[in-house]
């Protein structure tokens, strides 16, 4: 058997998808489920644009075997806003100019959401440490940090 039926929830919705055992989560999300908000950049776990949450844990979907997601609860960038309303974190990215070209933004926001879930009031040092490896090639890091700080209420 080299393929199987995976059952998991994506952004709160139960989903079933038949996949080859060697598929990556990023391909299942983008190609099978058409959730193309999750981007693929470096493909080697370094750049952060494919960041998603699996049972709340931030991982690189390009390094994550899809079979590991069986039974899990997955959150992608499409699941951060609720009912068509942007989350405060997303509003903060807009008001603080937390992006420039935008390609890294889904990964930045998912990573920041994971940080705030774990540490609702992070220090700047904690923000910098956590966001290490969420690369912005426009170097918009100051705005990203301001946005996270604002979303944290600081």
């Amino acid at each position: 058997m080299t393929e199987r039926l995976l059952r998991f929830t994506v952004n709160g919705e139960p989903r079933e998808v038949r996949v080859a055992d060697d598929r990556r989560l990023v391909d299942v999300l983008r190609d099978d489920l058409r959730l193309t908000g999750t981007k693929e950049g470096c493909s080697v776990g370094v750049c952060g644009v494919c960041g998603v949450l699996v049972d709340g844990a931030l991982v690189s979907a390009c390094l994550y075997p899809a079979v590991f997601a069986d039974g899990a609860s997955i959150t992608t960038i499409e699941g951060i806003a609720r009912g068509g309303t942007l989350a405060p974190l997303q509003e903060a990215f807009i008001s603080e100019g937390g992006f420039q070209c935008g390609i890294c933004t889904p990964g930045q926001i998912v990573a920041a959401a994971a940080l705030l879930a774990e540490r609702p009031r992070p220090t700047d040092a904690e923000i910098d440490e956590w966001m290490t490896g969420s690369l912005c090639r426009c170097t918009g890091y100051a705005g990203i940090r301001r946005a996270i700080r604002k979303a944290a209420g600081g």
């Binding site: 776990g45 952060g48 960041g51 844990a57 931030l58 991982v59 690189s60 390094l63 290490t132 490896g133």
Partner: peptide, 9 residues
């Protein structure tokens, strides 16, 4: 080690 994403996995 690397980043929090890698360390989670």
């Amino acid at each position: 080690v690397a980043t929090v994403r890698v360390r989670n996995q």
